[in-house]
Design a protein around this nucleic acid. Structure first.
Lengths: 354, 354
DNA sequence: CTGAAAGCGCTAACAA
DNA sequence: TTGTTAGCGCTTTCAG
């Protein structure tokens, strides 16, 4: 008999009635506004709990123009996506920040289609479904910034912007290329002199940064890259790259690849060609996905603190929305994890190349 | 000067004004209701396009109690999650169905915490943020069904329910255990007689179905399992299982594992123990993730049509919500993909076991 | 065929 | 400290 029990979900009016106060009082209580006596507060809270009432997200959004949701649009070829747990880790971190803040994550996976990507952003923004966006995979001359500015949407970039792009970005702390540098030094210390690099696609910002770090680290020891190839993050691409590398006259004794998936593919490509890892070829990956410990030999790789990167980005977005304090989340700098896929140069391999 | 340009997003009133009609007319046009003349329709559409207007999701939701969003709550230990691209594929399929229908996907990743899981469902439902839920990983005596019934939320299960659970479910077509059966027959045809099975956690429904299929397929040829172990989907678990298997006196010559991640771990565990795959041990995985083609030897595995499973589930949910026609999405039955990790028994291995 | 008007559930002035 | 009330942007009767 209390209110309209049974007929659908309770509303703020039901709670007010049950507590014997006005709806305004209920609103103030749940929003932590002042000007409510303790006893009233109590009665409201009790009534709300009894009715299991929570403010309707739609009503709140309509009223205040805040949806308490953020959007994440991922543009990737489906196959690549499912091959790479990269995103799952990132999202884990994002969630860890968003959930306690009462914010939802609206996910959109669009294939490898720029038009679909733009449409997704537009729809989410025009329908006012989200308060802001998280952008992943910083791209060279990223067109998303202009789009989001046009749409008037808040945005935070995960990673390093290409130039001084006008959005806040979440990045690793410390020296962001420390991982790649450490990897190169590790290889050189093992005696390698012919080190190759297989990069990711040229339109990704980190491709350039990492490759440059690779080249500089070699240069610092007076060396040049044995070879630098551009791949596409796919396993097939990595296999081709490794074939090219190993088929050459002066083949490298070590190779760095831009992600773990490619590195694992390299491992098996080498094996298939009868090249022993790490006996004849050392292999280094990037990201330190669980996969890296799973394969044989286990993969030496550059660990990225993806979970905290996701957290940091989400936090920045909440701050931009005025929903969180400006307490940045620390993201550990990339760090080399040495496992079995790297070892010293064997005499034979080092000497006789062709 | 037209309407309130520049001052925030356009509303239906702006469109009505620009088109010289009432807001009701605009509403009817965008919702495809009848009773609008073609010329009026045209003017409205043109005005809406010019203003880039899309109905506010919040207002629509408030008005109609339909949010055009579905929830997906995933409860998994973070590590397991990022090791397994399973979900990414499923979500790809879900998106493919939801997106064209104009529905969003609200994703919540909760750790391995039942309380957090329940809280996530409650919040999404109580705040009326979603119209329904997609449930993944069918569990034995799944408590989510009761919860969602209490919450009055629509739900569709991805996979086979434990008993006749009262929610619609999306499943593979044809014989759902055809894959496991084909795997067993493949191994038997290769001459294997001692075949072991490493299952997933006991609380997953498919664990029981697949294990039973395994046992029945063996029984059909008058054989019994060499050994059946329960693991936990993790790589570490798989490594332990393989050690246990290979350390035994009468060790199996072939082993099936409940997912590809475990199978890949098994591959390297075997190698580490000096056991050749497939020379001394054949290994079969489950799911056919991209990973399966990436490793050496490439993995024989049971392919699941996860993308269409996701599509089918999303479609069922849309149908339940009255948002789509009842045209089921076909999900291919599981199918064995033979690659390099399985081969005939070598005399030596078959004979001398200890 | 078209328009006026009543809310959907909530928040924030403003009054009391 | 508390209550009253006017909308937020939209859909939907119900009249015209």
């Amino acid at each position: 008999m209390t209110g309209r029990r049974g007929s659908g979900k309770p509303t703020i009016a039901d709670v007010a009635a049950l507590a014997g106060v006005s709806v305004a009082a209920v609103s103030k209580v749940v929003n932590g506004k002042g000007g409510i006596s303790a006893p009233t507060r109590d009665r409201v809270l009790r009534a709300a709990a009894r009715l299991r009432w929570t403010p309707s997200a739609a009503a709140v959004a309509l009223r205040g123009a805040r949806t308490r949701a953020v959007g994440l649009v991922v543009r990737r070829p489906p196959d690549l996506l499912s091959a790479d747990p990269h995103f799952t880790r990132l999202i884990t971190g994002v969630e860890a920040e968003l959930s306690p803040a009462g914010h939802g994550l609206l996910l959109h996976l669009v294939g490898d289609d720029p038009a679909a990507e733009e449409a997704a952003y537009r729809r989410l923004a025009d329908e006012r479904r989200v308060d802001g966006f998280l952008l992943t995979e910083s791209r060279v001359d990223d067109t998303r910034f202009a789009l989001l500015r046009e749409l008037g949407a808040h945005a935070v970039l995960v990673g390093t912007p290409w130039r001084d792009d006008p959005v806040p970005s979440a990045r690793a702390g410390g020296d962001r290329e420390a991982g790649v540098r450490a990897a190169v030094e590790h290889l050189l210390d093992l005696g390698h002199r012919r080190v190759a690099y297989v990069s990711g696609p040229e339109d990704r910002v980190h491709t350039h940064h990492r490759r440059r770090a690779f080249e500089e680290a070699l240069a610092a020891r007076g060396l040049a890259p044995a070879r630098t190839l551009v791949s596409d993050f796919t396993a097939a691409g990595a296999v081709d790259a490794v074939r090219a590398l190993l088929g050459a006259d002066d083949r490298p004794t070590a190779v760095l690849l831009a992600n773990d998936t490619m590195a694992v593919a390299a491992l098996s490509a080498a094996r298939r060609l009868g090249v022993d890892v790490p006996g004849e070829l050392s292999v280094v990956g990037h990201d330190d996905l669980p996969l890296a410990e799973l394969v044989y030999p286990t993969l030496t790789t550059v660990r990225q603190d993806l979970v905290n990167l996701g957290r940091a980005a989400a936090r920045l977005l909440l701050v931009a929305l005025g929903e969180a304090d400006d307490a940045p989340v620390a993201v550990r700098p990339p760090e080399l994890v040495v496992r079995e896929s790297t070892a010293g140069v064997r005499r034979a391999a080092a000497a006789g190349s062709r």
